[in-house]
């Protein structure tokens, strides 16, 4: 593990070398690919690969938003409910005859608005993020049941809307494109803009960020808005994929998203993590699920595998953090 150490701390000038630990999530992805290939001959087929990525799209959208929040030392438990909000808002609006584009815009705005509420509760209201977003999680789900009376919407969803998730561009399913686009966008924002770097800074040390003249308040609110917006987007994609408005859409997604982000090496205490790592986290969970399904492992047992995998990854990451001091 000498690679993480460096001569600079002793006054030398060695270039910083990336540690193995930083690539650990990516290595796990490679290992899972190998295991998948060995355990099932269907695994490596293009079809299956697209399948994995396509199904990863919705959780990935949520996970990317979650990553912004966690990097800024927050947490967003409301994402699952916001997904549901996005899902049924779009469906209801289209059923009521509004154009697809208007329906989508309203769904996304609704999601962003809940994110704004989260952000204001956390900053202006000084409520702990976990409590603030827990209450919006419960509240938003209740709003969904009021909007739909708890019943799924099957009617009035136009074909053009369904094509959004089911369509293909040059043979690549749109879902895969969403996944690629959201990570590309996150990469540019987090690694190449002042805003992105300041998100890291706020998560690393809020006090210092303030002294450095960063707009801490605005950054803390904005990460929740981004999270809400992306969760609502995932909800819209879900509605499009199934062609129905589902009041139960998104239930449990907050945990999936947190899992993906954290398995990808993003530190829950904020300030540390990479887009590449988060992508690996998304892939780890998706590929593992796919392998288990291909091998006809029962759903109950799948969760045990996932839980075990997460614990193993977390033990490794905490060991790494301890090494880094």
């Amino acid at each position: 593990m000498d690679v993480i150490l460096n001569a600079a701390s002793h006054g030398g000038r060695a270039r910083r070398r990336a540690s193995y630990a930083e690539f650990a999530p990516a290595l796990v992805v490679l290992a899972l690919l190998a295991i998948g290939a060995i355990s099932s001959d269907r695994f490596l087929q293009t079809n299956n690969m697209f399948n994995i990525l396509q199904y990863a799209a919705e959780p990935a959208l949520v996970a990317v938003g979650m990553m912004f929040v966690i990097l800024a030392r927050g947490i967003d438990l409301s994402v699952g409910s916001v997904m549901g909000i996005g899902n049924v808002t779009a469906a209801l609006m289209m059923a009521a005859g509004y154009p697809v584009i208007v329906a989508i815009a309203c769904a996304l705005l609704f999601g962003a608005a809940i994110g704004l509420v989260n952000g204001l509760l956390v900053t202006k209201g000084r409520v702990e993020p976990i409590i603030a977003t827990l209450s919006t999680m419960i509240g938003a789900r209740s709003v969904i049941y009021f909007m739909t009376n708890g019943a799924p919407l099957f009617e009035g969803i136009p074909k053009s809307f369904v094509a959004i998730a089911r369509g293909k561009v040059a043979g690549v399913p749109n879902g895969v494109l969403f996944l690629v686009l959201v990570f590309l966008g996150a990469y540019v924002v987090l690694n190449h803009t002042r805003y992105g770097r300041h998100v890291f800074a706020v998560g690393g040390s809020e006090e210092t960020a303030k002294l450095f003249g960063m707009k801490v308040l605005w950054i803390k609110i904005s990460v929740y808005v981004i999270s809400g917006l992306l969760a609502a987007t995932a909800g819209v994609v879900g509605a499009s994929r199934l062609g129905i408005g589902d009041p139960n859409a998104g239930i449990g997604y907050e945990l999936i998203a947190i899992t993906m982000v954290v398995v990808g090496g993003v530190r829950l205490a904020g300030g540390v993590g990479s887009v590449f790592g988060a992508l690996s986290g998304v892939l780890i969970v998706s590929i593992l699920t796919n392998i288990l399904q291909l091998n006809n492992v029962s759903t109950n047992a799948q969760h045990a595998f996932l839980g075990g995998g997460i614990i193993g990854m977390m033990l490794f990451l905490s060991w790494r953090d301890a090494r880094e001091g």
């Binding site: 803009t193 770097r197 300041h198 890291f200 690393g204 210092t208 960020a209 450095f212």
Partner: peptide, 28 residues
């Protein structure tokens, strides 16, 4: 010490004043 421990030395030096190109992207 006022610092962001998990960012690099250069980022700490320029924090809040990062040089940019095209008015948007950081000029690393």
């Amino acid at each position: 010490i006022q610092e962001i421990p998990d960012l690099t030395v250069a980022e700490n030096l320029y924090a809040g004043m990062e040089p940019r190109k095209n008015r948007f992207l950081i000029d690393w």
